[in-house]
Amino acid sequence: MKANNTDYVSFQHVKKTYDGKNLVVKDFNLNIAPGEFVTMLGPSGSGKTTCLMMLAGFETATNGEIYIDGTPVNNLAPHKRDIGMVFQNYALFPHMTIAENLAFPLKVRKMSVAEVKLRVADVLEMVELSHVANRYPKQLSGGQQQRVALARALVFEPKLVLMDEPLGALDKKLRETMQMEIKHLHEKLGITILYVTHDQDEALTMSDRIAVFNDGAVQQLAPPSELYESPSNTFVAQFIGENNQIKGQVQSVEQSRCQVRVGPHQLQAKPVLIGGAQSDTMLSVRPEKIILRPYGPDIPNRVAGRVEEMIYHGDHFRLIIDVAGLARLVVKVPNSSEQGLGVQLGEEVELGWRMEDCHALDCVSSQSLPSEKEEMMV
């Protein structure tokens, strides 16, 4: 079997087991085009890092084939794959200066002294760290060290760079800054990037496509907007962004819409992953898609509830509304009025949402997500 000539990276029916019984990666298939930024997103223990390590050559696939630029690499040593790597812990040599750290992968490749000096200078300028060339890693901030780690992965001009939770150790503001720096470098250099994270905002911000992992399998592979707006199952809906889940029973299905009974309410939804009439389903609707005091014929789903909580978030208000016989719904309302929201705690209000914004999915109210205590290198 050969990889498609248009793919730079290709996983074909890849499986991984450590004990010969339990698969931590189950029939993984993924094709990445040259210059594409693909993120593997999922909770800890879902299999995403194992897939990255198999591509890097630090883990061996139990079954299946992995290709880089059309060449099978299952039996190729890591140092022969010509891959740049960036890790969360930076992995910089503490006894070397920044310039020496960057020169190391070039010297291993036996480049001339002149070429090494030129490339180190160029990559330092690219990440705007020319002024720290003679400092040691411990003399730099966390953000500067991460930029050095990124520069070291790029200095030998690889066509493929793998990043494993590279921003996990940074604070929120610095992490957001580094996200944009990596995105801009990707656009400038045109390299192929495979990125691993459990941070959904990071994945949505940076990626061309996202593979959502759970329990060793890809739940959905799609561009960020499609993942958010059209989740393929309950796990993706609850893992990507905030989401209201409403359990109901399918009453009828007609092509692009279905009727769902939820307590005393009859609601309309877009059928995505459901059975026939009388089957259980989980409705998914985003907080920002729910309209306060709806009007107009294009909003068929209308319910009334009592405001239990109001939280001010600057650009929006977050409301928790108890709808009798249905659920406690989260509603996000833009802060666009000088008079404020015009709603009081304890007040009865009407809510509504469009059929197109409500997805009828598989009826799984919660799938166990590993906690931080259960975090595994999988």
Score class of each variant (00 low, 15 high):
S279E: 14
K289F: 09
S279P: 15
S279Q: 14
I299Q: 09
G263D: 08
S284G: 02
K270Y: 00
S284E: 01
Y295G: 02
I299V: 07
M282L: 09
D298P: 10
M282H: 05
V272N: 01
P294G: 06
P287K: 09
Q278P: 10
D298R: 11
L292G: 00
L267Q: 02
V262G: 14
P294K: 06
R286W: 04
G276W: 01
L273K: 05
P294S: 07
P294C: 06
V272F: 01
P271Y: 00
S284W: 01
S279V: 15
I274M: 06
D280G: 15
G263W: 05
L283W: 11
I291M: 12
I290N: 15
R261F: 05
V262H: 14
Q268W: 03
P264F: 11
M282S: 09
P294F: 09
R302E: 05
H265S: 13
K289E: 06
Q278G: 09
P287Q: 07
Y295S: 03
T281E: 07
V307S: 12
L267I: 02
I291K: 15
D298W: 14
G296H: 15
V285F: 10
R293N: 11
I290W: 13
G263E: 11
Y295E: 03
L292S: 01
P271D: 00
R293Y: 10
L283H: 12
N301S: 15
G296A: 14
H265R: 13
R293G: 14
G276L: 02
M282I: 04
P264Y: 12
Q278S: 10
V285I: 13
L292K: 02
P264C: 12
R306P: 04
G296K: 15
Q278N: 10
P287E: 07
L283N: 11
A304G: 13
Y295P: 01
P300C: 03
I299P: 06
